[in-house]
Amino acid sequence: MSEPVVPQVLDVSRLAPPEPLERVLDALADLPAGRPLWVLHRREPFPLYDLLRRMGYGWRTLGEDPRVEILIWPLANPPSEAELAWRIPS
């Protein structure tokens, strides 16, 4: 049996630039080692992807404007099936 998902969710969908980017970077720095982060955004954050690539994170984006979910994880710790399947509640 897979571990139960304990999601760490960050909602940046009501923030103006550059706060969403700042909050995501802060949240990643504070994240328990190896855990993934779910981000709720209002649009696809293309500039964030460049930074994630540099920092050694993987990501997967679902949905479209104005509701986009981004799952971010350290490349060394890929998410489990259960984590990949989990969605942020509406």
Partner: peptide, 18 residues
């Protein structure tokens, strides 16, 4: 007034992380 500060800040962030 929005775009220039954002790009300046973003590119510095990028350089800092790199």
């Amino acid at each position: 007034f929005k775009i220039m500060p954002f790009l300046s800040w973003f590119h510095l962030q990028y350089r800092q992380l790199s």
